[in-house]
C-alpha cells in the first residue's frame, strides 16, 4: 500500500485587515452599538421631553396653538405670582417634613424588623402594603378618612366623647397641609423601611459581637456600626424619597386639588392645572421647569455625598 498523498487544503493568502475588519473586532465600536438602544430610549423619552418642556417655558404656547419665543416672560410672571410662591413654599414644606418623617419612621421600622420576631416574613410583607396599593386608591381611602362629614376619625372621637364636632381635616389651611403630609408619609414609609432593612442585613454580625465584647451600649452600636454602614444606602433611598415627594401629584390631586384656596397646591399640581386645565402650556412648563433646580440640588447633595469616602466607608 502506498500512502496516497492527500492534497493539502489550499490556504487563502493572508490579506491586509480592512478597516471593516478592524471595526468588527473593535470593542468600543461594538460597545457603542450595544448602548444605542438604551441611549435612544433615554433621548427619546427623557431628554427630548425635558428639552421640549424647557423650550416651551420660553414660549407663549397654548393648547391647540403653537407659541412664539417670549424669553423669560413666563418666569418673570410666575416668580411674582403669589400663588406660585405659595406653591414653592408648600412643596418645600411638604417635601421636608414628609421626608424627615418617612426617614425616621422607616429607619425605626427597619431596625425593628431586623430583629428576630415571630412571623417575621409575614410582618415584613404587611409593612409593604401601603406601598403596593395604587396611589390613587389610597388617596381615595384618605379622602374618606378626611371627609368633613363622614370621617371615621371624627366619628370615633365623637363616639368616645372626646369631641363634639367633626375635625375640619381638609378645609383648614394647616390641617389640610398636615393631612396630606400624613397620607404621604403613610404611603412612603414602606419603601424606606424595606430598603433600609435590606441594608441592615448586610451589616456583618461579627461587628456587633465584637462591640458587645467591648461593652458597647445599644446606642453606641447603632451610632458607630449600624449608622455608618447604612449611610450609602440612606443616601440613595433618601434621594429617591425626596424626588418622589417633591414631584408628588396624585395624592394632592385627589385629596384637595390644591385647596383650600391654594393651601396645599404643589408645584406639580400647579403646573398641571396651569398647562392642561388652564390651557397655558408655556406658563405651566415654566412652573415645572422651576422644579428642576430644586431636584438637581437634591441629586447633587447625594451624588457628591456618595463620592465621598467617608460616606462610602462610614468613616467619621
Amino acid at each position: 500500500m502506498t500512502d496516497a498523498a492527500l492534497p493539502l487544503p489550499r490556504r487563502a493568502p493572508i490579506r491586509e485587515a480592512t478597516a471593516w475588519d478592524r471595526l468588527k473586532t473593535n470593542r468600543n465600536w461594538l460597545g457603542f452599538w450595544f448602548m444605542v438602544p438604551a441611549a435612544a430610549f433615554l433621548i427619546l423619552f427623557l431628554a427630548y421631553p425635558l428639552g421640549l418642556g424647557v423650550w416651551l417655558s420660553f414660549t407663549d404656547t397654548r393648547i391647540g396653538r403653537p407659541g412664539e419665543f417670549i424669553g423669560i416672560e413666563n418666569y418673570e410672571w410666575v416668580l411674582g405670582d403669589s400663588k406660585f410662591q405659595d406653591a414653592v413654599f408648600n412643596t418645600l414644606f411638604y417635601t421636608t417634613i414628609a421626608s424627615i418623617a418617612k426617614f425616621a419612621i422607616g429607619l425605626y421600622l427597619a431596625i425593628l424588623l431586623n430583629h428576630h420576631l415571630p412571623f417575621k416574613a409575614m410582618i415584613r410583607a404587611i409593612v409593604l402594603i401601603p406601598f403596593i396599593v395604587p396611589t390613587v386608591l389610597s388617596a381615595i381611602a384618605f379622602w374618606w378618612i378626611f371627609d368633613p362629614t363622614f370621617s371615621i376619625v371624627s366619628w370615633t372621637l365623637k363616639e368616645m366623647g372626646w369631641r363634639t364636632t367633626n375635625i375640619n381635616f381638609l378645609g383648614d389651611t394647616w390641617n389640610a397641609r398636615w393631612s396630606v403630609i400624613f397620607a404621604n408619609v403613610w404611603r412612603g414609609v414602606p419603601f424606606i423601611a424595606i430598603t433600609l432593612l435590606a441594608g441592615l442585613q448586610t451589616v456583618p454580625p461579627s461587628l456587633y459581637e465584637a462591640a458587645t465584647l467591648d461593652g458597647a451600649t445599644r446606642w453606641q452600636m447603632f451610632r458607630y456600626i449600624t449608622y455608618p454602614l447604612l449611610t450609602p444606602i440612606i443616601a440613595v433611598v433618601m434621594t429617591f424619597s425626596v424626588l418622589f415627594t417633591f414631584t408628588d401629584f396624585q395624592l394632592i390631586k385627589v385629596l384637595t386639588n390644591g385647596g383650600p384656596a391654594g393651601a396645599t397646591e404643589l408645584m406639580a399640581t400647579m403646573s398641571y392645572n396651569t398647562a392642561i386645565l388652564g390651557g397655558k402650556i408655556g406658563e405651566g412648563a415654566a412652573v415645572s421647569t422651576a422644579m428642576i433646580p430644586f431636584l438637581l440640588g437634591a441629586i447633587m447633595i447625594s451624588w457628591f455625598g456618595l463620592q465621598r469616602r467617608k460616606w462610602q466607608q462610614g468613616e467619621d
Binding site: 378626611f146 368633613p148 362629614t149 364636632t165 367633626n166 375640619n168 381635616f169 381638609l170 378645609g171 383648614d172 389640610a176 384637595t256 386639588n257 385647596g259 383650600p260 384656596a261
Partner: peptide, 8 residues
C-alpha cells in the same frame, strides 16, 4: 357647616 373649604 364646618368643612366647606374642602368640599369638591
Amino acid at each position: 357647616v364646618p368643612g366647606c373649604a374642602s368640599w369638591n
